[in-house]
């Protein structure tokens, strides 16, 4: 606003305007610096806002339990200790829980990606009344919170004989509406001409899918894979209900059992939580590029 009125005024008062020109340039430049500066500063403020609790959390895990609540609070431990970590690792069958969780997260992720890719493609590229009904059914699953479906899903799993088996936590989480929707909306953007051209060249439907569509959708695959891994890694209540045998427990059950009815052993809990974060951090470092993309879709329901 003020810039345009400046220009109007310079038109009217040319002589004066000539004198004012360098001043105006400087003005705009400083305003631009100001704009950039404020955006960057804001980013830093947010970054610190997000990072600070995490930093405190990680640093606190190295404090002895007597230091955790002592006043005044300190950011850095006065005395570094790994006792929280060692107690956490020893008090539960942590290695076994770790392996179980990795098996569950990996197998589910592979199956989720495969199932979502195939069904997303079918829903986007084939026209059929029953497919539409199926699509609505998938959509409907997002309308019920997981807690509501807990009891009926439990009965199904029990009757299928999957109670107390890792498969009992893998199978129900394979099909996720989010995954199907992600692939469907992606395949909708792929022009139909591509499919038709392939058909004219004599490609069968399956080879169109595997040779053309699957490679095209690689970014979406990675995005969903990261999501799915994260969901399964953090799952708690469903594994707790389905698994009975401690040798099949997942990591989150182990961590949750540190939180007692009456009191919480904070130093052990902190250590265990940091350990459980490590795989996700590694995943993030490896797939950083795609995680950034994945979080654009954050807020979707699993």
């Amino acid at each position: 606003m003020s810039a345009s009125s400046d220009i109007l005024r310079t038109g009217a008062l040319a002589a004066e305007g000539r004198r004012r020109t360098p001043h105006r340039k400087k003005n705009i430049a400083s305003r631009q610096i100001g704009r950039h500066l404020s955006a960057t500063t804001l980013l830093w403020v947010f970054a610190i806002g997000f990072a600070f609790p995490l930093l405190w959390f990680v640093l606190s895990s190295f404090k002895p339990s007597g230091d955790l609540f002592s006043y005044p609070l300190t950011l850095f431990p006065k005395q570094w200790t790994l006792s929280g970590y060692t107690t956490a690792w020893q008090s539960f069958d942590f290695a076994q829980y770790f392996i179980n969780t990795i098996i569950v997260a990996c197998v589910t992720t592979v199956l989720t990606v495969a199932a979502s890719c195939a069904s997303g493609y079918a829903l986007a590229k084939y026209q059929n009344r029953w497919l539409k009904v199926f699509f609505v059914c998938i959509l409907a699953t997002t309308m019920l919170p997981t807690e509501v479906m807990l009891a009926p899903s439990f009965l199904v799993i029990r009757d299928l004989g999957l109670y107390n088996a890792l498969a009992g936590i893998i199978v129900p989480s394979i099909l996720t509406a989010t995954g199907v929707l992600m692939f469907r909306s992606f395949f909708l953007t792929v022009p139909d001409d591509l499919v038709e051209a392939a058909r004219i060249d004599g490609a069968r439907e399956l080879s169109i899918f595997f040779r053309i569509m699957v490679p095209l959708s690689r970014p979406i695959m990675l995005t969903l894979a990261i999501f799915s891994f994260q969901w399964r890694w953090n799952d708690y209540i469903w594994p707790l209900l389905v698994l009975n045998d401690p040798s099949k427990f997942t990591l989150q059950i182990g961590i949750q059992s540190i939180v007692g009815a009456q009191n919480i052993n904070w130093s052990v809990l902190l250590g265990a939580s940091v350990i459980s974060m490590i795989p996700l951090v590694i995943l993030y470092l490896v797939f950083q590029k795609y995680v950034m993309g994945a979080n654009i879709n954050a807020g979707l329901k699993d």
Partner: peptide, 16 residues
Amino acid sequence: IPYSGYSTKLRDAAQA
């Protein structure tokens, strides 16, 4: 068994 979820688990286990 973790305390939060223990009572739910007992109910479900009774069903199963």
